[in-house]
Simulated scan of single mutants.
Amino acid sequence: MTDHPLNVLFLCTGNSARSILAESILNAAGKGRFKAYSAGSHPAGQVNPLVLDWLKKQGLPTGRLRSKSWDEFAAPDAPKLDFVITVCDNAAGEVCPVWPGQPMTAHWGIEDPAAVAGSEEARRHAVSMAAMMLNRRIALFTSLPLNKLDALSLQRELKAIGELRNTGD
């Protein structure tokens, strides 16, 4: 597609779990080909501590992660986005800002680990399950031959990745 890293924004409502996981995972897996960001329509104001713990245990970057509004990415000085991917059903149904550069969009709904009640073990398991599904989808995304796909084919591939279901394996 281009010689510069492709900018990917992951959106969620609270920007405390799923989109944060996706940002960190893609920044590690993208090997300089992608620059991932995350934001929320109604940011929680802090990253879920269990998400930070999971990322640290995996050796993934956490230093720059913060819960922030998607408005930052609609500002005139924001990075030009190549892809905007919603990872929660609520954010997918909201009216999003107008993104500079007309990025390609997709929806990759993931269950919210931050919404899981119960024991710490159950909440940690929910974070691991969300991360596993995001890892799978991001691996497929980063393996796409982006320079060989036309826009319609790429949009189809992004949609298919979002339709993957968690099989628990």
Rank of each mutant, 00 (worst) to 15 (best):
T142Y: 05
K35W: 09
K57Q: 14
W70S: 09
T105E: 14
F83P: 15
R124K: 08
G32S: 07
A115M: 03
D77H: 13
A36F: 00
D89H: 07
Q46I: 00
E120N: 07
S69W: 12
T142H: 06
R33G: 08
R66C: 01
E23L: 00
L146P: 02
V116R: 13
E120K: 08
A75K: 15
A22C: 08
K148S: 08
V127S: 06
P100L: 01
T167Q: 11
E94K: 14
E94Q: 15
P97R: 09
I110D: 03
P113Y: 10
G168Y: 00
K80N: 13
R33V: 06
S69C: 11
N166P: 01
T105S: 13
M133A: 06
G109A: 04
L158T: 12
T142P: 14
D53G: 01
L134F: 08
L164Q: 15
E72V: 12
P103H: 04
G93P: 06
K56N: 09
P113A: 05
R137A: 03
F141R: 13
P43S: 07
R18F: 03
K31R: 12
G109F: 01
V87H: 05
I161N: 06
T2E: 07
A92K: 12
L6K: 13
S69G: 14
A126I: 06
P61A: 01
K68A: 05
G59A: 03
V127T: 05
I25L: 09
D112R: 04
N7R: 14
G162P: 09
E157Q: 14
S41D: 12
G162C: 04
Y37C: 01
L146W: 11
A44C: 04
I161R: 08
G45F: 00
A39P: 15
G162N: 09
A39T: 15
W99F: 06
R156I: 08
D112E: 07
P97E: 09
S128A: 05
P145A: 03
G59Y: 01
L50N: 01
I110G: 02
N90I: 15
T167Y: 05
G118P: 15
P103Y: 01
S119F: 07
I138A: 08
A39F: 06
G162L: 03
L144A: 08
W108I: 02
L152A: 05
H107Q: 06
T86V: 02
L11C: 06
A22E: 11
I161L: 01
Q102V: 02
G14V: 08
A160D: 13
N15Y: 11
